[in-house]
Amino acid sequence: MAILVDEDTKVLIQGITGSFGGRHAQLSLDYGTQVVAGVTPGKGGQKFADTVPIYDTVDEAVAETGATVSAIFVPPPFAGDAILEAVDAGVDLAVAITEGIPVIDMMRVRAAMEGSKTRLIGPNCPGIVTPGTGEDSHGGCRIGIAPGYIHKRGKIGVVSRSGTLTYEAVWQLTALGLGQSTCVGIGGDPINGTSHLDVLKMFNDDPETEGIVMIGEIGGTAEEEAAAWAADNCDKPIAAFIAGATAPPGRRMGHAGAIISGGKGTASAKKAALREAGIEVAETPAEMGSAMVKAMG
């Protein structure tokens, strides 16, 4: 089951011939993910790693291979266009890994996507992993840049705005033997495609997911919105961690969206809202796994 993607999901990669996109396309293939196509304008007809056909357009790649998910590794100046191309081709899911897309571009992309069937994850995110059942979770669906081997097929859903912090949580859940149903990196930008709340709802409806780890950080109010919904609607235990308690106001902490502005988006306000909703909040990033165990009782 899991959410969004599973071992049968057919994935195409926009920007497969770039060094970053190519490296991670190979790692996904090695993980056992069905990477069925690549797209790089002007390189149609070539092959990636001698096996994966490359097309000039997403439209063509979808028509020829039946891919339903696109992973986007296109550089920032062209990424907005790449996302809209995936939407136009009618993929179910577009996962934008690219970091550094101008905010105004994302504002327009989100508005232009209204009413389409495509869900956008990211940008500026590590992607999605539904672990497989093989050794080191091999055989799963890895879309993006996360290290596959740290996962273990299991029962915890993970949703996060950060990359390495997600890996840290995944590592802890694997070490505790809980494993993961699906891990979703929603990205560190101020305007993104899918929120904490969207993913919480999906995990709540997923029979394989028994508990949820939600990782947030300073900036915006997405964690508060998710908590308000969860208080009355979520049937599953949730553990959370919020990064940035020591971050100075007004400074962007690496992620474009991680900024306390006008006194809004502080870690303490988020933690209070989460606790208010009955969510188990980990005091430190070292306790994300144990907080999940505690929440599950």
Binding site: S160, R161, S162, G163, T164, L165, T166, E168, G188, I215, E217, I218, F241, A243, G244, A245, T246, A247, M253, G254, H255, A258, A267, E283, T284, P285, A286
Partner: peptide
Amino acid sequence: GAGLAMSTMDIIKH
């Protein structure tokens, strides 16, 4: 990683 970097600051304070 930015998230882990922020969290590392937090755990020092903790």
